[in-house]
């Protein structure tokens, strides 16, 4: 019994080690090295054949200068802040759009649900890149949105949507909406309908019952959905580079420029490590807080 439990816990830890910690330490290692014109383009690299001496030499050459460099130019700071802003706004819009959809799905008759679920998942069958490209055609000056609005006589000059932050918001909301809908739907689906019914029987209005019962009980789904949207949106590269304008400053683009235009893998790795810290630390704090609250409630 004990063995079984250990084994069951071991699997996720092994997964974590292999696909999170090992890559993280590789990136961390590169972030402590210096640029070189070689394959791979940084030094020092670990030479195992030299044994202990090689290891000592390797560690003695590592330095934190790349992290210091990030503080010398406010570009990085601004890019982090503007990524946080864009990701926060986009997550909020996704929640506003996704919650009613999930609610509608959960209140739909049982025989409709598989179809509705299918409709949410269906876009994943097409490449993400192609779907974002399609938005370039939809939002462009000669695109579907502008031509429809002009045909309806609402506007007379085409709106500039593509290559602005609005297009980035639209792209993120569209791209990540299923990640918001599915966990909220899962939470609402489990919700016991008799709870809201009894609240109404006891004189609660429908709206009040929704806020007092449904929303708090669906909170785990909302939190999960927000994380699933916020985290990838923060480091997003494809959407801002295809739909955003030259003024759209996001850390994913800065990282790409460090990596390929500057050929500076060490600084690019330092940017990535800092991004990870910005993400992981608040999430850990949040989780702790959640846990404490739950314990307090019990």
């Amino acid at each position: 019994m004990q063995l079984r439990r250990t084994f069951l816990i071991l699997v996720p830890y092994l997964w974590m080690l292999l696909f999170f910690l090992v890559p993280f330490f590789i990136v961390m290692k590169i972030s402590l090295s210096q640029v070189a014109l070689a394959i791979p383009p940084y030094t020092p690299t670990l030479d195992i054949t030299q044994g202990w001496d090689g290891l000592v030499k390797f560690f003695s050459q590592l330095s934190f200068s790349n992290f210091q460099f990030l503080t010398t130019d406010d570009l990085y700071w601004r890019a982090y802040v503007s990524s946080l802003e864009i990701a926060t706004v986009a997550t909020a819009i996704t929640l506003l759009v996704g919650y009613p959809i999930a609610y509608g799905m959960a209140s739909a008759p049982d025989e409709w649900r598989p179809t509705l679920m299918m409709l949410v998942i269906l876009p994943f069958w097409t490449s993400f890149l192609i779907r974002i490209y399609a938005w370039m055609g939809i939002l462009g000056r000669e695109g579907f949105v502008n031509s429809t609005l002009e045909w309806l006589g609402i506007i007379h000059e085409p709106l500039t949507i593509l290559n602005t932050n609005w297009a980035v918001f639209i792209g993120i909301v569209y791209g990540y909406l299923p990640f918001m809908i599915l966990p909220i739907y899962a939470a609402l689906d489990k919700l016991d309908v008799s709870l809201t019914e009894s609240a109404q029987d006891l004189g609660c209005t429908q709206i009040k019952a929704f806020w007092l019962i449904t929303v708090p009980l669906s909170r785990p789904g909302v939190v999960a959905g927000c994380f699933l949207v916020f985290i990838p949106a923060l480091g997003e590269y494809v959407i801002p580079s295809l739909l955003g304008g030259s003024g759209t400053l996001m850390i994913g683009k800065v990282l790409w420029e460090e990596f390929s235009s500057n050929r500076d893998w060490p600084v690019a790795s330092a940017v990535a490590v800092v991004l990870l810290l910005i993400l992981v630390v608040p999430i850990i704090l949040f989780q702790r807080n959640q846990q404490r609250q739950q314990e307090a409630e019990q």
């Binding site: 406010d74 570009l75 601004r78 890019a79 030259s246 003024g247 759209t248 400053l249 800065v254 420029e257 235009s261």
Partner: peptide, 8 residues
């Protein structure tokens, strides 16, 4: 170049 494109 970043400054010219993004103004930052």
């Amino acid at each position: 170049w970043t400054k010219i494109k993004s103004g930052v």
